[in-house]
Amino acid sequence: MNTASPTVTLSDDQRDCYQELTNVAMGQAADRLARLLGEYVVLPIPRVNLIESSDLRMALEGYGEDSSVSAVCQGFIGSGIAGEALLVFNDTSFKDLARLTRREQDLTHNGQLELLMDVSSLLIGACIQGIGEQLEVHFNQGHPVVLGQHCNVRDILKAGNELWTKTLAIEIHYTMESVNVDCDLLLLFTEDSVLRLNQKIDYLLD
């Protein structure tokens, strides 16, 4: 997974810094989700790795072949740094999500789509902007795209672009304390962006 490339590398100090920036950004996102749902969001330690895009499935290995998921992706770009956010929801989450947002009566395919879009724009937006603020980069966000509803993870990854050979992946697994809601947020940066990101990180580390 972490084979050295001549151009893109990630030192322990850089990884630690990415983790800490993510920690702050995902905390801001969790706060918004907690206020929307009225439930406490459990914050994990984010994982930061350089991976081949073909290894993306390993990042989502928590989902079995037969678990049903729904997913959204959204691009972002700013100051020469570009990437994509991928949010994968376990479909079992929707029942509690609908209850907590008082939309139980609307648990249809379209109702779930609306919930998926609302929660993903909240989580993705807060995370991206949170990381951007700390790096002093303003990210413009593209339109969110639904990669699939009620399918398995393999289909989701097939629908996503086979983006880049090497990508910096930041993985955040959100769960909630007393309700059955769980999702994975992956932030994937292009290979070119990693060099610029690392420069900004090195500046912070200096």
Partner: peptide, 9 residues
């Protein structure tokens, strides 16, 4: 000193 800024935390 935390990034977990939820009121609950």
């Amino acid at each position: 000193v935390s990034g977990d800024i939820q009121p609950d935390a």
